[in-house]
Amino acid sequence: MTPLSSGPDPDLAPVPRREGWWDRRLGFPAIRAYLDSFSVPGDGSWAHALGGALVTLLLFEAVTGLLLLFYYEPDSAGAHRSVTAIAETVRFGWLVRSLHHWGAHATVAVVLLHVAVTFLRRAFCAPREVTWWLGLSLGLAITGLAFSGTVLPWDGPALYAAQVGGAILQSVPGVGPGLADIARGGPAIGPATLHRAYVTHAFVLPAFLLLASATHLFLVHAHGLAPDPTTAGRTSWRTFLPRAALGWLLLIHGIVVLAALRPPLVQPAIDLVASDSPPRPPWFLMAVFQLARRAPAWACVATLAAAVSVLAAAPAWGKLRHGKRATFAVGLTLALGLLVLTVLGYGG
């Protein structure tokens, strides 16, 4: 939301109201007056509510994650036992775990939408480059959270995630082996791997998310949302926020329904000698999985690095003469590539 250029709309001017007890102590009138200087571009499309949806989802994941921490034991002996206990004996444990699980899926989905919308609207152009880069790093951190979260139950899928994640890191030229050792806590997967995944998932990435998203939000406010190229009109926050909040509420509602109907199963405990659970990644990693079935490790790393680099360099190539067409072409290529690989991954 950005300061209105032409002053507040007289129709939307706040109705004077009597100052209440809380108003005098917490200064709500001043906050209201401040908020009245904000608006969103265009007719207040749902596309502008995606960032707020992510804030809502991350808070939701933080709360359910904290609840899980009350029972989760972050060591190789207790991890699987405590996750089983949460799912089977703790009252409403199955629901909290399921909410955290489906909330994570929803977060990744909304991240993809948010990136797609801001990219196609060319919101990465000056002066919003740093906002764009911070946003990309937030997206990567959220993928990292989803990935490290897979390891925490210390079951079959956890072993596959750790093995493949470690091998992908290891194949990065130069620093790869060192990075893989840091991620695994040694040359092989073991109890140290679980502990590092736990520290990363519960402390390192959330702390980064908190700092980076605060800066991201500050910059969004400082520069305002990218203008809508089709219209110069604006929508007051009084119209936009209730609509957006309804959308966020519906999103959480959908997660609750899904979580109640489809709690994730408890997989068999990890077996470092020969685990037999079928290795299938979550939907958002299916494209990478399909790539890995067809290509050596270095090619997977190169493809991922190229995709992220093209997005990160968008402010540079986006301002060239054919920047608009290039944005469309790059967006289409990335989206089609992701879609085709995902479909092939489920088919094969």
């Binding site: 093995q163 091998a167 020969a274 290795p279 050596p296 490790a297």
Partner: peptide
């Protein structure tokens, strides 16, 4: 060594 040289599964 049962570690797959491709991406590390067993």
């Amino acid at each position: 060594d049962a570690t797959c040289p491709h991406l590390g599964c067993t």
